[in-house]
Amino acid sequence: MKTKRLEAPGGIFRYLFLLPAAVIYLSVIVFPAFYSFYLSFFKWNGINPNKIFVGFQNYIQLFTQDQVFLTALRNNIIWIVLTVCVTVTISLLLALLVNQQFKGRTAVRGILYFPYILSGVMVAIIWSWVYQPQLGLLKGLMDAVGIANISTAWLSNPSTALLAVFFAALWQGVGGPMTLFLAGLQTIPADLKEAAFIDGASKIQTFFKVTLPMLRETLVIVLATQIIASMKVYDVIYAMTGGGPANSTQTLSTWMVSQTFTFSNFGMGTAISTIMVAVMMIIIVPYVSLMSKE
């Protein structure tokens, strides 16, 4: 009888097993998210017990008076575009490369994936030395090919700093999506490619007509995760430039942290975090919904 009661539809015992996970999820994710949204309507320094209700003033001020916020929003959009166009493309090309049969491909896979397991701060330290104007690796390579006269102050020049940091993040970030693409490629039946070759299709035609359509589900996952990561990018930027020079590399994450903990403006910081979530939902939800329907 006890066994039947445990297995009966609508029995309470099944929900008790979900309770620990539900409590953790609500307390760690749901409640902090709603509380941050609540704080975005106040002016508060994080210490004073009295919060001043300002309504949507924090949001209005961000879009009308805060030029750094607009720069950070633009930089995030640029970062997303570069990630989708460059990081995802290079990851797919590398996955196609290491999916081929050649000697030492396991070692090549490990080498390409290795930067992905490094912390963002470690990557920032490595690439800060690469970009070092006098003794850096890039300066040495430029001297070797005879273009030493080109400016090498990559991280201190507002016009090049964001791209310089992005290439550091690119070096670290291609390993993750490459592995996902590789897993997707290995699920494609070889018979499909062989049939395409028999029908006279070239390698390029086979890629676009067979390989790419078969990678649709993997592509959805890769693009969604990469866009989310692009919106949250923080550590490599903070460690390499701190948002400078002249706030040229600020992103929503770095500016949110600065507003919250440097300037003790919790209302403005949580407003930025709410905008980040809204932007991610505007991009991700329609994309995933459309791809799922197709």
Rank of each mutant, 00 (worst) to 15 (best):
T3H: 12
T3F: 14
K4C: 10
K4P: 12
R5Q: 15
R5N: 13
A8M: 13
P9G: 09
P9A: 10
P9S: 11
G10T: 11
G10W: 11
F13L: 14
F13G: 08
Y15W: 12
L18K: 04
L18A: 13
L19A: 10
V23Y: 00
I24A: 07
F34D: 02
Y35G: 02
F37M: 15
S40R: 02
F41W: 09
K43E: 14
K43G: 02
W44Q: 06
W44E: 02
I47S: 11
N48R: 08
V54L: 00
V54M: 02
F56P: 03
N58Y: 00
Y59E: 01
Q61E: 15
L62K: 03
D66L: 05
V68G: 00
A72K: 04
A72V: 03
N75P: 04
N76T: 07
N76E: 04
I77L: 15
W79Y: 13
I80D: 05
T83E: 05
V86A: 12
L92D: 02
L93V: 13
L93D: 01
L94G: 08
Q100C: 00
Q101A: 11
R105P: 04
R105I: 12
V108S: 01
R109F: 11
G110R: 04
G110T: 02
Y113P: 04
I117Q: 02
V123E: 06
W129H: 12
V130D: 06
V130H: 07
Y131D: 08
P133I: 08
L135G: 10
L135V: 12
G136T: 08
G136P: 10
L138E: 07
G140R: 13
L141V: 10
M142F: 14
A144Y: 11
N149R: 14
I150P: 05
T152A: 14
A153H: 14
L155Q: 09
S156H: 09
N157R: 04
P158K: 08
T160I: 10
L162E: 08
A164Q: 09
A164F: 09
F166Y: 15
F166R: 07
F167L: 14
A169I: 08
W171P: 11
W171A: 12
G173N: 13
V174H: 08
G175H: 06
M178E: 02
T179D: 00
F181E: 01
A183W: 03
L185N: 05
L185R: 03
L185I: 07
Q186R: 06
T187W: 00
P189D: 15
D191W: 03
D191M: 11
L192Y: 13
S202R: 01
Q205N: 10
K209W: 09
P213N: 06
M214F: 09
L215E: 03
L215T: 05
I221P: 06
A224T: 15
T225W: 09
S230P: 04
V233W: 06
V236Y: 01
I237S: 04
Y238A: 13
G243T: 00
G244N: 09
P245V: 08
S253D: 07
S253Y: 01
S253M: 12
S258D: 11
S258V: 05
S264V: 03
T270I: 05
T270L: 01
S273Q: 03
S273L: 06
S273R: 00
T274K: 00
V279P: 02
M280S: 15
M281F: 13
I284E: 05
V285W: 05
P286Y: 07
Y287G: 07
S289E: 07
S289C: 06
L290C: 07
M291K: 14
S292C: 03
S292W: 12
K293L: 07
